[in-house]
């Protein structure tokens, strides 16, 4: 991976103020994203995994510039887009699109599907007006919906179909990067499969780059080429999907993977279940050393004292741990 990444987070930080205080220093701030370095390369699908509260959605929104960053930089295609205003972001917005988790709230209930999809095309003058209907039918085709859907309102569709519309909207401007924020979490399991397949299919047909944010490891494994694991606002481990899934290096990854349910009948798939002891620390007041130290079964004194940086291992992955398996 020597080519420059398509999009990069450099020491990206996002804080939320929980409590203001007139007395300096006694207010409470939550670091949802804590000096994260992350790169997404062209053509890959990076799966971003973590529990709720890990900061993965916030990171996704920072990367798409839907929320402001407190510190650090977002670099897209070599250009620092962190502090750009609305006008400066216009070309960026054409290239980077987001798909949201809740298909019922991400579509304006009072507008027809055709209106929702054609608006970005009209605003950005991507196609001349007479070509827009054709482009809309193309989009419907791409996501597997009939052209008649264009005249309907979002509430007339099922959850899975609405998510397809959301995907169509993201695709309308032919972006180079799609950030999908838990796109299948709100769907029924049977429908999830279809949408996941759609993602895979589109990636092949359109050569898209994805940042796929999810908490379901099974889905992530299916879709991603690379994986990044987040915990309490920091990246714990990144690497190739198979590399990580077959042999996790970080204790947290290990615990996560062990929790994946396995069929009882398959003895080969049985694994040692690691149950984490200890408390999840208060996100507003994380531990001084490694963030995982309160629950890590291998914790040592160094772990409590010093926070480990993301360091490369021999097989190319990055791990933030003082004592990874060598």
């Amino acid at each position: 991976m020597t080519a420059a990444p398509l999009i990069e987070a450099r020491a990206l930080t996002r804080e939320f103020v929980l409590r203001r205080s007139w007395v300096p220093g006694s207010g409470q701030t939550l670091r949802a994203v804590d000096r994260v370095d992350l790169a997404v390369h062209k053509g890959e699908t990076l799966g971003l995994v973590g529990e709720s509260g890990s900061g993965k959605s916030t990171l996704g929104r920072c990367l798409t510039r839907l929320i402001e960053t407190t510190d650090g930089a977002v670099v897209f295609d070599g250009q620092d887009v962190t502090r750009l205003g609305t006008r400066g972001l216009r070309p960026f917005r054409r290239s980077v699109q987001m798909i949201f988790q809740d298909p019922s709230s991400s579509l304006n209930p009072r507008r027809r599907v055709g209106d929702i999809l054609s608006e970005p095309l009209a605003i950005h003058s991507i196609h001349p007006a007479r070509e827009i209907p054709g482009r809309l039918r193309e989009l419907m085709d791409l996501v597997g919906l009939p052209a008649a859907a264009l005249d309907r309102f979002p509430h007339e569709f099922s959850g899975g179909q609405r998510q397809r519309i959301g995907i169509a909207r993201a695709l309308a401007m032919e972006p180079r990067l799609i950030v999908a924020d838990e796109p299948v979490s709100a769907l029924d399991v049977s429908v999830q499969a279809q949408v996941v397949n759609l993602f895979a299919d589109l990636r092949e047909r359109l050569s898209l780059t994805y940042l796929f944010i999810a908490h379901d490891l099974g889905v992530v494994r299916q879709v991603s080429t690379r994986v990044a694991i987040m915990y309490l606002g920091s990246v714990m481990e990144t690497g190739g999907t198979d590399t990580i899934f077959d042999a996790p290096a970080h204790p947290y990854t290990e615990a996560l993977l062990s929790a994946i349910p396995v069929p009882v009948a398959d003895p080969a798939a049985r694994r040692r279940r690691i149950i984490l002891k200890g408390e999840i620390p208060n996100a507003a007041n994380p531990p001084k050393g490694c963030k995982f130290v309160t629950r890590c079964p291998y914790a040592q004194d160094l772990c409590r004292a010093e926070r480990p940086a993301l360091r490369p291992l021999a097989d190319g992955r990055l791990v933030a741990c003082h004592f990874p398996p060598s």
């Binding site: 609305t86 917005r93 949201f100 809740d102 991400s106 608006e119 605003i123 959301g166 909207r169």
Partner: peptide, 14 residues
């Protein structure tokens, strides 16, 4: 709401 966020994300003017 997410559809307003989406609209901002699409670069639509305020």
């Amino acid at each position: 709401s997410e559809f307003v966020l989406a609209a901002i994300g699409l670069g639509l003017p305020t």
